[in-house]
Design a protein around this nucleic acid. Structure first.
Lengths: 145, 145
DNA sequence: ATAAACCCTAAAGTTAACATTAGGGTCAAT
DNA sequence: ATTGACCCTAATGTTAACTTTAGGGTTTAT
């Protein structure tokens, strides 16, 4: 029941990133190794692997490394931030995420209609491009609309 | 009922981007002006505005400009692509989008738990950071898991 | 005991997605 | 008719997120 530790190459392979990326994340203080071997090799824990997965998934949906660092920093019961801080931050981020999900749903719908219109579907002539589907002004409104 | 055309500055303001960004998108063939004035000024149509909105929203959820260009290029009934091409492409992209929505939902859930745990909630001690919530190995699995 | 396959740091290079600079026309109002 | 707020192109600069290079230790299998 001893904790398993991974060398940088092993972690890189598990998460399908390069070892250089992992070292880069360390310089950015996004992912620090759990410890170092006597020879100075980085040793990563299972927890570090979870953190890495989180970073990669958050990146995939459009968060910058700076934003991800912020997300990783939010913690309850750590005196550095007040409870109000955490409340505000999480609420703001949740709203941001909901907006992203909304955008994705619309793009998905547009692609689905395009897919359906394919191969001589009834609506072939109507939805010839993704833009045509998204032309509806009620979709994708921007603040000053 | 004549079509309204916007100068580059007007379009930029409407979509809250810089005019440089718009000219940059043109060099990348992502957004071309509907026409030019006699003086050579770019004139954008309402349709161009929709396309710009699409670009910006797609960018927000993690698509690169190259991917967005692909998305804009998919069209039914244009002889350059076979029906099969369009079917495959849209299905692949839809799956990609669903994965993104999944990731966002998980991050959202983690933030919601953090928010709930805040201010002395029952679970304060349990969910002290976003990572703790995401520690569940059934979340965020990567292929080789 | 040596070679292949790892690991280290530090520094410089790369790519995407813009922003800035330089040098110059255009247009509307005073 | 000139000034300020626009527009143009072309070239160079910037930032984020890596990648590559250079030079050198470590570990493991033969």
């Amino acid at each position: 029941m001893t904790a398993t530790l991974y060398k940088i190459g092993e972690l890189a392979q598990k998460a399908d990133v390069s070892v250089e990326t992992l070292r880069f994340y360390e310089t950015k203080n996004l992912l620090n190794a759990h410890s170092r071997s006597s020879a100075g090799y980085r040793l990563y824990s299972e927890q570090d692997l979870h953190q890495l997965y989180f970073i990669l998934h958050a990146k995939k949906v459009g968060f910058s490394l700076a934003e991800i660092k912020q997300l990783l920093g939010v913690q309850v019961n750590k005196q550095q931030y007040t409870c109000e801080d955490v409340k505000h931050f999480t609420e703001e981020k949740i709203a941001q995420i909901e907006a992203k999900i909304d955008d994705l749903s619309k793009i998905k719908l547009a692609l689905a209609q395009l897919n359906k219109a394919c191969c001589g579907g009834e609506e072939s002539a109507m939805h010839c491009s993704i833009l045509h589907t998204l032309e509806d002004p009620t979709l994708f409104q921007v603040k000053g609309a």
